[in-house]
Design a protein around this nucleic acid. Structure first.
Length: 154
DNA sequence: GCCAACGTTGGC
DNA sequence: GCCAACGTTGGC
């Protein structure tokens, strides 16, 4: 099983929105970057991800979610009324994928600046200069450090 | 709102 | 296939 970090703008989908889905799952969609899409295609059911709030007042890790299924074509790419519409994508030749997630827990918010302050995390893909990917892999050692050292105090 | 960094497009 | 121009992301 692998670990990931998924960004979301809480104005659109927050960790509370994922939690409110209760036993149900939430579709993660709208990714329009090939590198991020390829990471989504590597995801498998049972993988876990930090749910990260971006482009908002309180930026950082806000919770933990589980991947519940393999990637599948993102329906919004075919919807001309959607901001995520892609004229070059067709159902026969889809370009973009969604993945379903489920809420595991809401944590205290671990700010981006706090992540940056720990030398143990300096290799994190999220923290790389200029990194903008909405989905990035998290190394097991990084995952454990965050889980055990930063999230225990929630 | 600014701007650095990155990805994509398209002319050649 | 190069690369300049443009658009987007996302932290500050």
């Amino acid at each position: 099983m692998r670990y990931w970090l998924m960004k979301s703008e809480p104005d659109e989908v927050s960790i509370d929105d994922v939690a409110a889905a209760r036993n149900k799952t939430v579709a993660w969609f709208g990714v329009r970057n090939y590198q991020a899409r390829n990471f989504m295609r590597e995801m498998r059911p049972g993988d876990q991800a930090f749910f990260y709030h971006s482009s908002c007042a309180n930026i950082g890790i806000a919770g933990v979610v589980e991947i519940v299924g393999d990637a599948y074509p993102d329906a919004t790419q075919f919807d001309a009324a959607s901001p995520y519409f892609d004229a070059k994508a067709t159902p026969a030749t889809p370009r973009w994928d969604s993945v379903d997630i489920r809420h595991l827990r809401t944590t205290r918010l671990v700010p981006l600046a706090e992540l940056r302050s720990h030398p143990e995390l300096e290799g994190m893909r999220l923290l790389a200069k200029g990194s903008r990917l909405s989905v990035t892999p998290v190394e097991p050692a990084e995952w454990r450090f965050i889980e055990q050292r930063l999230l225990q105090e929630s």
